[in-house]
């Protein structure tokens, strides 16, 4: 049953993104920003956590999940005071961000862009 929920919720979030790209004239980076922001805001309002509990990766793998992760980390840092709030978000998402930068840099150095296929 977990898999079904992951599929449905993950798919549904992608559909929202697809509609944003097709129906409005927003460019892809703008759509990504909107999705991450929505994840942060929904988690701040404590709406996203139940979705994650239900769908697992279905809610964590799409980009709102990235925003959710950042917001969750920041909120969890509250007991440690100001420093906890500032470091909490990035700390929670550190694995993804670091590998995206490091591995991405390596990939960019190794490969060349291809022309028209």
């Amino acid at each position: 049953m977990d898999y079904v929920w992951a599929f449905i919720v993950g798919g549904a979030i992608c559909v929202v993104g697809q509609i944003l790209m097709d129906a409005t004239k927003l460019t892809t980076p703008r759509v990504l920003v909107i999705l991450v922001l929505s994840g942060v805001i929904l988690q701040a309002l404590q709406i996203y956590q139940p979705i994650v509990d239900l769908a697992g990766t279905g809610a964590r793998v799409p980009l709102p999940g990235f925003g959710y992760n950042l917001a969750k980390g920041a909120i969890e840092g509250v007991p440690q005071g100001l420093l906890g709030v500032i470091t909490g978000g990035v700390k929670a998402a550190a694995g993804g961000i670091s590998i995206a930068i490091g591995w991405g840099y390596l990939m960019a150095l190794i490969f060349n862009p291809k022309s028209v296929r």
Binding site: V33, V36, L37, G39, V40, I41, Q43, A44, F66, G67, L70, A71, G73, A74, I75, G77, V78, G84, V85, I86, G88, G89, V90, A93
Partner: peptide, 10 residues
């Protein structure tokens, strides 16, 4: 956007 807004939320 993600990091700034998360700090704000925090």
């Amino acid at each position: 956007c993600g990091i700034t807004s998360s700090i704000l939320v925090g």
